[in-house]
Amino acid sequence: MASERPIDHADYEITLCEMFADLLECDAVATDDDFFVLGGHSLLATRLVNRIAAELNADIALKTVFENPTVAELAERLSEGRRPVGLPALRPHRPALTPAPPEKGEPG
């Protein structure tokens, strides 16, 4: 069973520093370093959003990275939407799929 302990702000900062460093191929990243000043661009920002979703179980919009480009700012946004570890992110409701109507001449 997954832990119910919420991720705290410091945990987000540590993990985001590691993600920034990995994606940007830097030795180390500080909490006040700007993703884009360090060489990030829209494609790497998309990869960052996907890693945040996969590793932190948090859904953020790409726009959030552009508006909050430092580790500290992004960690703050993630902390605002805090939820227990292991719980899935809320997803928009998707309608059920229905079968296509039969082609002419096929039994229906």
Rank of each mutant, 00 (worst) to 15 (best):
A2S: 13
E4Y: 08
E4N: 10
R5K: 15
P6Q: 13
A10E: 15
D11V: 08
D11I: 03
D11L: 12
D11M: 08
I14N: 15
I14H: 08
T15C: 14
T15G: 11
T15Q: 14
L16T: 13
C17H: 04
E18S: 03
F20I: 11
D22S: 14
L23G: 03
L24R: 08
L24D: 01
E25G: 10
C26Q: 12
C26H: 12
A28T: 13
A28W: 10
A28K: 13
V29K: 01
T31C: 13
D32Y: 12
D32K: 15
D33L: 00
D34Y: 03
D34T: 07
F35G: 01
F35M: 05
F36N: 02
L38Q: 06
L38S: 01
L38R: 08
L38P: 00
G39T: 07
H41R: 10
L43V: 07
L44I: 08
T46C: 09
T46A: 10
R47D: 11
L48K: 02
V49M: 09
N50I: 05
N50L: 11
R51E: 12
I52G: 02
L56W: 00
D59P: 02
A61F: 01
A61S: 00
V65I: 03
V65P: 00
F66A: 04
E67Y: 06
N68Q: 14
P69T: 01
A75R: 03
R77Q: 13
R77C: 08
R77S: 12
L78M: 02
L78I: 04
R82W: 07
L87A: 05
P88V: 08
A89K: 08
A89Q: 12
P92D: 07
H93R: 10
R94H: 15
A96L: 11
A96R: 15
A96H: 14
L97K: 12
P99V: 02
P99S: 03
P101G: 11
E103V: 09
G105M: 01
E106A: 09
E106D: 11
E106V: 12
P107K: 05
G108C: 05
